[in-house]
């Protein structure tokens, strides 16, 4: 190997531009602003978000766009395919499918959102308390969760529906009973991780009360995974509602959810396929949109998971 003489003139001194290092080139962003910035880059997710917005809007105004009520039976016009008067056709009792689809959207979305919110409320409270206090409190609360976790919730949920009787509030209640455990475990894990960090110690040294610690310091920092999980709960709840309707435990007539509509559609598939196609597509599109938004949220809120 050739020998290279190292002389001082080979080196150039880099002067650290002290002022330049101090200049902030980008505006400082909060966690949520930063997440939104990343979310926006995902075009597909923006489209999905738009679709969800549109579905929500239609759920609000859709039933008023046509001059029919969702339970009005026009027995002269039963089972009509989509036409000018009935955009999505009519069902076997002459009810307008367009109006019923958007009434169904109200109920399906309501079930989904309520289930997600209540899951969050119960799960966050339980998981937060369990993790914050730790020790024997945590031990007892976790044993309870472990027992619940081992029970196949879906079977229990079907059983509960049978026992309490079908209905909108039963449906939501049963979903929360089956769903909060996952959320509680998630929150507990998050809070445990955060508890070990310095800012928590600092807050405690400054004399923050347990309540303030949980609300102001721990939960906001655990919010990312909680939001992702809640977003994923909504399509799962819509799916569950449809499944329940299909096995005969849906919400009672004449109310319509997407699940009950699809169930009617299934019964008439060989005669009037449009009765399944519209609610079936509505469920599929909504689930698809929620899944895409959920995935994008995961990428946006937790950059570490990104590959």
């Amino acid at each position: 190997m050739a020998h290279i003489e190292l002389t001082p003139d080979l080196f150039e001194r880099e002067v650290a531009p002290e002022e330049a290092a101090e200049v902030i080139t980008r505006p400082s962003l909060t966690y949520w602003q930063d997440a939104w910035r990343r979310f926006r880059q995902n075009k597909l997710a923006l489209v999905a978000l738009g679709v969800l917005g549109l579905i929500t809007l239609m759920a609000i105004v859709g039933p008023y766009m046509r001059p029919y009520s969702f339970s009005y039976q026009d027995l002269d016009h039963t089972a009509e395919p989509p036409n000018r008067d009935h955009w999505f056709g009519t069902d076997e009792l002459g009810r307008d499918n367009f109006v019923r689809l958007w009434m169904g959207a109200r109920i399906s979305l309501f079930i989904g959102v309520m289930a997600a919110l209540l899951d969050m409320l119960v799960g966050v409270t339980y998981g937060g308390i369990s993790a914050y206090f730790g020790g024997w409190v945590d031990d007892i609360m976790q044993r309870f969760i472990e027992i619940l976790y081992a029970i196949p919730m879906l079977l229990l949920m079907i059983l509960l529906m049978v026992v309490i009787g079908p209905g909108l509030s039963t449906m939501i209640l049963v979903m929360v009973i089956g769903g909060w455990v996952g959320m509680a475990r998630l929150v507990r894990g998050q809070v445990f991780q955060l508890k070990a960090q310095e800012f928590v110690l600092a807050a405690r040294v400054l004399g923050a009360s347990p309540w303030r610690m949980i609300i102001r310091h721990l939960l906001p920092n655990a919010m990312g995974p909680i939001v992702i999980s809640a977003t994923m709960t909504i399509p799962a709840a819509i799916f569950f509602e449809a499944f329940m309707s299909f096995i005969g435990l849906g919400i009672p007539m004449p109310l319509a959810s997407w699940g009950t509509l699809a169930n009617t559609g299934y019964e008439y598939i060989h005669l009037y396929p449009w009765l399944l196609i519209f609610p079936g597509s509505a469920i599929a599109i909504t689930m698809l949109a929620f899944n895409i938004v959920g995935d994008a949220l995961r990428d946006a809120l937790d950059p570490r998971l990104r590959q």
Binding site: P235, F239, A242, F243, F246, A262, G265, Y266, I269, H270, P273, L276, I277, G280, I283, A284, I285, M287, L288, N291, I292
Partner: peptide, 22 residues
Amino acid sequence: AVIGISVPNFVVGTLLQYLFTV
């Protein structure tokens, strides 16, 4: 994969039945 996760199985089943048999 995303379609498989998003479309409920009874919709898939009924539509397949309709398409391939009827």
